[in-house]
């Protein structure tokens, strides 16, 4: 193929009408022939004018927006600028910190929820006890006996309320904490004979509330006492008396 043969192919090349094989051989020639390349440039100008043969049409405005939006994101991701990279790392770090903060906050919320739930439950228990106590106190014939502290712990106080059926509630306050394996035990002393009552362990503030049943023999003339005993309770008092009535 001679130079003029290639040259004849150029107009068709400008409108991309060459078949694959023709296009391939012409491209090879163009690489080595500046004259033909210039010729092609000229023909492409003519070919470009043919675009006017198409009816001019307005694209939708979204195309412009999409292009500008795309190049905006393209620019921010493709350019490697240390500052940008650093700032992105900062945001990534903020993101991680945010995630950690969220986890911590979540944990705090869960703990707070549990605490509130327990407090609420404790309050409900207290309320139930208070209601029970009130109910008992207002029962006709109910008695309230105060137990006073002995010399062992002068600050402790307790009241025992019981009705004629022996239904009793003991409320103690400011009792010293008990050692491991020990508990306070209530005693009903009729004459010189101590009858065992139930045991209880006060809470951290020294408060203790316990329901018990006063033996029928103790309903009219008994002394009530609280001693420190093994936590399973004893059949006869072994420890010192902390509180007692009728002093």
């Amino acid at each position: 193929m001679v130079h003029d043969d290639y040259k004849e192919m150029i107009p068709a090349r400008a409108v991309s009408a060459l078949d694959a094989e023709d296009a391939r051989v012409l491209n090879e020639h163009l690489e080595n022939c500046p004259e033909c390349r210039r010729e092609l440039d000229d023909w492409e100008t003519t070919a470009a004018a043919l675009a006017f043969a198409a009816e001019p049409l307005e694209p939708s405005p979204q195309v412009r927006e999409r292009i500008l939006s795309e190049i905006g994101s393209d620019r921010s991701t493709s350019q490697v600028i240390p500052f940008k990279s650093t700032s992105r790392n900062i945001w990534t770090s903020f993101g991680s910190l945010g995630a950690i903060a969220a986890v911590v906050l979540f944990a705090v919320l869960i703990v707070a929820l549990i605490v509130l739930w327990r407090q609420n439950r404790a309050a409900q228990v207290d309320l139930a006890r208070a209601n029970e106590f009130l109910q008992l106190v207002t029962t006709p014939g109910a008695k309230v006996t105060e137990l006073k502290a002995t010399d062992i712990d002068a600050g402790a106080t307790a009241k025992l309320v019981y009705d004629r059926n022996g239904r009793a509630i003991l409320i103690a306050d400011r009792l010293p904490g008990v050692p491991q394996g020990k508990a306070y035990q209530l005693w009903f002393i009729v004459g010189n004979k101590p009858l065992p009552g139930k045991t209880f362990v006060p809470d951290d503030t020294g408060k203790g509330v316990m329901k018990d049943q006063v033996p029928a023999t103790a309903l009219d003339s008994a002394v009530f006492a609280i001693t420190l005993e093994p936590d399973g309770g004893a059949s006869a008092p072994t420890g010192s008396i902390y509180l007692r009535s009728g002093q």
Binding site: A51, A54, E55, P56, L57, P59, R64, I67
Partner: peptide, 17 residues
Amino acid sequence: LGRLYDRYRVILFGLLM
């Protein structure tokens, strides 16, 4: 780029259509 687009969008879109 916005200005170049505004200048040629109509003719190029017509061509592509």
